[in-house]
């Protein structure tokens, strides 16, 4: 039910922004619970490739998904530690691992435009539209689709 809300060009919208492989992405703040620094991950062997592991969020166990993998982008360089964007989707809390965190911005006066058709399919799958801002283009991520890895069952495990 929340999936449809981001597709409508609503006037008042605050976006929690972050960077993944140079892309400027945003999720509507109502989906974002909090933002955390890198947390120690427990690897889940045989999990879908996008699942980097589990984190302990104050006693709750949260699945951490690599947004790079989910978007079909190249993996993060070894020494860079990802940040956690904790989102709520369909009653579950999931962490999206991103490269860096940006500000929360108002996108009041911008209309959501369709995702350019030449973006890679992995990005198209997750991004519902783009907001061309003054200095950059913000890709609007659908939280529900971002945490859905069922179509990406490239189970290769995640060797530590």
């Amino acid at each position: 039910m929340t999936a449809t809300t981001t597709t409508t060009p609503v006037a008042t919208r605050q976006m929690c922004t972050f960077w993944v492989d140079g892309l400027f992405l945003g999720i509507s703040v109502e989906h974002v619970q909090e933002v955390l620094r890198y947390q120690q991950l427990t690897v889940v062997p045989r999990a879908p490739a996008a699942v980097l592991g589990l984190i302990n969020l104050r006693g709750q166990i949260v699945t951490a998904l690599d947004l790079r993998c989910r978007l079909g982008l190249p993996p993060r360089a070894g020494e860079d530690l990802p940040m956690n964007v904790i989102v709520r989707s369909r009653g579950e809390v999931v962490s999206l691992l991103v490269d860096d965190i940006g500000d929360v911005i108002d996108t009041d006066d911008h209309l959501l435009q369709p995702t350019p058709a030449n973006l890679p399919p992995g990005v198209q799958d997750v991004v519902t539209g783009v907001l061309p801002l003054a200095g950059s283009i913000l890709l609007v991520v659908d939280a529900d689709r971002a945490v859905d890895v069922s179509s990406h069952l490239t189970t290769g495990g995640t060797p530590s």
């Binding site: 427990t42 996008a50 589990l54 166990i61 949260v62 699945t63 369909r90 890895v149």
Partner: peptide, 22 residues
């Protein structure tokens, strides 16, 4: 454990160890 891991039959769930890790 989350929906993303439900299809993995070999896990029954998760727990938090004494050192806070999962």
């Amino acid at each position: 454990i989350g929906r993303q891991l439900k299809q993995l039959a070999m896990y029954a769930g998760a727990t938090i160890m004494g050192d806070g890790r999962v």
